[in-house]
Design a protein around this nucleic acid. Sequence first.
DNA 1: ACTATTTGACCACC
DNA 2: GGTGGTCAAATAGT
Length: 319
Amino acid sequence: METKQQSLKMMNGGWGRNNLMNELVRGKGLAQQLKADLFAASSAEMQCLLTERILGCYEKALSMLEYRGSFAGLSVDTVNVSSIPTYRKRKTPSPRLADEVVQVVVAGSELDSPLDDGHSWRKYGQKDILGSNFPRGYYRCSNRHAQGCLATKQVQRSNSDPTIFEVVYRGRHTCIQSSRSPVRSPWQKKIGAVSKDAEENGSTPHGPTPEVPDCSMSTVPNFRSDLMIKNVDNKIDSLPCLSFTPSPMEFTNPFEDISFLDSKVMEASVPDYYLSMPVCLTPDSNLTEVVSGPASVTNSLTIDKISFDPEFSFETFYC
DNA sequence: ACTATTTGACCACC
DNA sequence: GGTGGTCAAATAGT
């Protein structure tokens, strides 16, 4: 059986950012070599060989991107906490809806569902939003009727970057999801068997789903895929934040050793079977004060970027 | 047949 | 009246 670290290193080593960069750089070098060869009028055989090697590099790079995009393509770029626009109250506003608002900016993929967060959602509406190039999708928890769960989310592509999804979570999950996998999602249903989708995407689940913590009560999603942890300025030395007290915001680290991570950008590719675990936040925190200073928000939380102290050590927790 | 999604209509708020 | 959020019938998918 694969260990956590093995899986993580496989992910990083096989499809990681560094390898992708290596492939692209290698392709560039080969192209330059081909260019020199063309000028030097070397043999057609040599030029053909170089061409094939270049194509191989880019195919490999593209397959990495495809894998990351289709299967694990959701990366939480960063997290920062700031104010969030207030939302109009409806005629009979739910107290819970008004209680918690969490916005997450997610680097998405070609998938329509940009943030498979471990919860099961049902789409109940879509609207064109003034000033937005893309419609906003409205989702509610699938257990709304069965268990009266009032959690909702809104998903909208960013105007500036269509690959970015802005996801707004409202309300707290009060539902209890499947016993085998408490945060079961359509995506998670695929785990344990090579699904048709996975085959088509060239992605392969890496074993059975382990027991995962039940974060169903949390508003904020358990991001299912790559957790990309960046400093706002990509500078490690300016990360004084996130001294989580008293446990308003909790993170799960399914892997103990992150020493191999890039020193500039901490990128943690999460093993498949931990994809439901990487991040679990509770929005009723005072992180606004910790991270972004004088945010005047009391009941809402915007997560744009996650900044970590390089010395920050994750601790496994169970909600 | 059941479930999920789409989409036009409705309603509340500004 | 404009806008955003929700409803619910129609439609599609399984």
